[in-house]
Computed example of a mutant assay.
Amino acid sequence: MIKHIVMWKLKDFAEGKDKIENAKFIKTSLEELRNRIKQIKFLEVGININNSEQAYDAVLYSEFENVEDLNFYKNHPEHLKVSEFCSKVRSARVVTDYEI
C-alpha cells in the first residue's frame, strides 16, 4: 500500500478568488477524482483550521495499491488539470509518498 500526502500553502488571492475559495475548489476538484480514477483506494482532503504561521492551508491524504497506480493517478489528465490549478494558487507545496 502506498500513501501519498500533499500539503499546500495558498496565496491570499489568486485566479480571481481568495485563499478559502481556492482551498474549497481544490478540495472539491480532488474529491471528484475518486469517481474518475479507479486506482484511488482512498482520498481525503482537509482545509486547515489552525492559525499558526507554520500551518499549511490544504492537505491531501490518499492511498494506492502500488507505485504503478500512484503514477497512473499522477499522470491522469483529470489529475493534471487539478494540479495545474494548484500550481497557480499555491505559494508552497510539500509532498511525501511512503509504502506500508
Rank of each mutant, 00 (worst) to 15 (best):
S83K: 12
F72R: 00
K19H: 06
N35S: 15
F85E: 05
L30K: 01
R34V: 10
K9C: 08
V89I: 06
H4S: 09
L30A: 00
F25T: 01
K81L: 14
C86V: 15
I5G: 06
D57V: 02
E53M: 06
F13T: 06
S52W: 12
K24H: 08
A58I: 07
E84T: 08
F85G: 00
L30G: 01
L43Y: 08
V6I: 12
S29I: 07
N22S: 09
Q39R: 06
G46F: 10
E63Q: 13
V67T: 10
Q39L: 04
K41E: 15
Y73F: 06
I40E: 03
D97S: 11
L60G: 02
E21R: 10
N35A: 15
D97W: 06
F42Y: 15
V95A: 15
K81D: 04
E99V: 11
E68G: 01
A23D: 07
E84M: 08
N66M: 03
N66A: 03
E68I: 07
I26A: 12
F25V: 01
G46I: 00
H79P: 02
E84L: 11
I26W: 02
T28V: 10
F42Q: 05
E68Y: 08
S29H: 02
I40W: 07
S62V: 05
T96M: 14
Y73C: 01
T96S: 13
N66H: 04
G46H: 12
H4C: 10
V59S: 09
N66L: 07
I20R: 14
R90M: 09
K11F: 14
V6D: 14
I100G: 12
R34H: 03
E32D: 14
E65W: 05
A14E: 04
N50P: 04
T28C: 01
D57L: 00
I37M: 02
E15A: 13
V59A: 12
L33M: 06
Q39S: 11
D97K: 06
V94I: 15
D97V: 08
C86W: 02
T96R: 09
C86E: 11
Y56P: 00
N75F: 12
L60V: 10
T96P: 01
E44F: 05
F64P: 02
S29M: 05
T28W: 03
A23F: 11
N66T: 08
Q54I: 03
I40Y: 14
H79T: 03
A55L: 04
A23H: 05
T96G: 13
H79Y: 09
G16L: 11
L80W: 14
K38P: 05
E44H: 05
V6A: 15
E78D: 15
F25N: 00
N71W: 04
K9Q: 10
K9I: 13
V45R: 01
K3G: 08
E84H: 12
L33H: 08
